[in-house]
Design a protein around this nucleic acid. Sequence first.
DNA 1: ACTTGACCTGTTGGG
DNA 2: ACTGCCAGGTCAAGC
Length: 272
Amino acid sequence: MIRQQLAWFDPARIGHSGQCFRFAPLPEGGGWGLTARGRRLCIRPDGDGFLFDCTPEEWETVWYPYFDLDTDYEAFAAAVNPRDAYMTAAVACAAGVRILRQDPWETTVAFILSQQSNIPRITRNLEAVCRAYGAPFADREGNIWYDIPTPAALAAASEEELRALGLGYRAPYLRAAAARIAAGQPDLASLAAMPYKKAHAALLTLPGVGVKVADCVCLFGLHKLDAFPIDTHIRQMLDAHYKRGFPMRRYKGFAGVLQQYAFYYELYGGKT
DNA sequence: ACTTGACCTGTTGGG
DNA sequence: ACTGCCAGGTCAAGC
């Protein structure tokens, strides 16, 4: 158990932000639990800081990078045009949200499942897939959790089995994409080293991955902060507030962070 | 190079 | 009780 005081870190908002689907309030309330990188982590507020139930070594090597704590998000917020009332409000509403460094394969699975769906259902579907095909592991209290299945494990599943988990027409997409990744086409690990546009193009070759999902994988799984996923909410936001186009030039290098703040603001408005 | 439907499914939500 | 529509899209078919 370690204690940290962190700038621009709000687990409640991160958990609700829709970038991750295995980050949920603890049943007893007051804290958050997440499953990622083959581990389980609980976060509980403690005065002006947070308690994390991990060792200092785990914090340094796993969770500090996972939460992207090396990146200065306050600088991104400060770079917002003060005359842009919409983005100023969005950033204030989403203050404390960071772009997690999630596993690219996990984000690929999650966002293939996300199409024409909603956050509660995506969460359920992803959990069902993990329970059915993922490797179980125990936390320090002996509770069992399930990792994201390997590409090979998902490729070996039948479409029928996947449909039985409630994935609908996404089942064949997921299965086929898993087979491609298992065969190293493309090799997800090597995408992280590519520039955003090359990585995006490679992801587009996957079945069930279109422009929007590829952008989500780039932003949330490959940490390409230039990626700017445009979904229905962001489409409406752009039409309403940026009729002359979003100022990508001004925000070059971190436009995706602002996309995430706008997305959060669209979903939760003034609340949370 | 566009535009248009079909596509699974729901601790659906609203009339 | 029922029907229609929507949810963080993608793909293939048709001009």
